[in-house]
Design a binder for these strands. Structure first.
Length: 272
DNA sequence: AAGACGAAAGTGGTTGA
DNA sequence: TCAACAACTTTCGTCTT
């Protein structure tokens, strides 16, 4: 599938070798956001005195009040800006290490902004919501990544991402249908270096399987893996169960169980 | 020697009382 | 909040190529 070959241009910097890439990939905003300015900014004193300790004239006093007000405002808008910038850079970092196209990242960024606008971040971490937005965006774009895969490149765990995902999906009224195994096929096929013919066959098998209810309730990655395995046998470019299981990140046992169901229920002619 | 098969026990997450 | 439940994993022994 074409979309699978569009590779992300990545960050604006270029890495000339692997070592450099690893170093640079870790550049990002600092991790502590509790005190955004680390106490370095000037604060206007609350006492209405000048530097000699004298009382301030009423006019001057009013002026100082206004200054204080603005300082407060700038401070919070600064913090939100900074948080947004951090979230977006996280999004970018995760998306490029997952090899996702630009559009997916943009949708994720949009979702994140909407989450901020609706104050959905309260009580949740920036990292968690950013990862959740990316996960949601992948699914909406039908270029799914599993929760495990997202968690692997994220700074937070799978559980938190899942929780945040469900929350924002509900609050932002995203209607995301369950992931179809078919959506995983192009990626797995290309990782296994199989040809288009096998891919088409696998998709055909999955469509048949769907009509017989063999896909519901089952993990989409496992079903996709089994279909690809069968297709690879049928098309004479066999991959081992182990290889297929590895790219789908499931066990051989799962591939076997799904594969058995497929062969049985679809009455496929597999050579012994 | 490598791959495929399947039984059995264990794990983590969802669901329904 | 708890337990039941299904999907999936882990582990391991056996059969097949």
């Amino acid at each position: 599938m074409l979309t699978d070959r569009i590779i992300d241009e990545g960050p604006e910097w270029r890495a000339f070798d692997q070592e450099q890439r690893e170093k640079r990939a870790r550049v990002g905003a600092p991790l502590t956001y509790t005190i955004h300015d680390k106490g370095l900014s000037t604060m206007i004193d609350w006492r209405n005195r000048d530097s000699y300790g004298k009382d301030l004239a009423p006019k001057r006093r009013a002026q100082i009040y206004r200054l204080r007000k603005w300082q407060r405002r700038i401070r919070v808008s600064d913090a939100t800006e900074r948080n947004l910038a951090y979230a977006l850079s996280e999004l970018d970092r995760m998306a490029s290490s997952l090899g996702l196209p630009r559009t997916v990242r943009e949708i994720a960024a949009m979702l994140y902004r909407r989450a901020v606008e609706q104050r959905l971040i309260r009580g949740r971490s920036i990292e968690g919501v950013a990862a959740a937005a990316l996960y949601a965006s992948c699914r909406q774009s039908r270029i799914p990544r599993t929760l495990d895969e997202v968690a692997e490149v994220s700074r937070v765990g799978k559980k938190e991402i899942g929780r945040s995902y469900r929350f924002i999906a509900r609050e932002l009224q995203l209607s995301i249908p369950p992931t179809s195994p078919i959506d995983y096929v192009p990626r797995f096929v290309s990782e296994l270096k199989l040809v288009g013919k096998v891919q088409a066959h696998a998709v055909k098998i999955l469509k048949m399987a769907a009509t017989k209810g063999l896909t519901s309730g089952r993990g989409p990655t496992g079903v996709a893996a089994a279909a690809i395995y069968v297709a690879s046998v049928l098309e004479n470019s066999r991959r081992t169960q182990r290889e297929v299981a590895a790219v789908a990140r499931v066990t051989e046992v799962t591939v076997r169980n799904r594969y058995k169901e497929l062969v049985e229920k679809l009455e496929l002619e597999v050579p012994l």
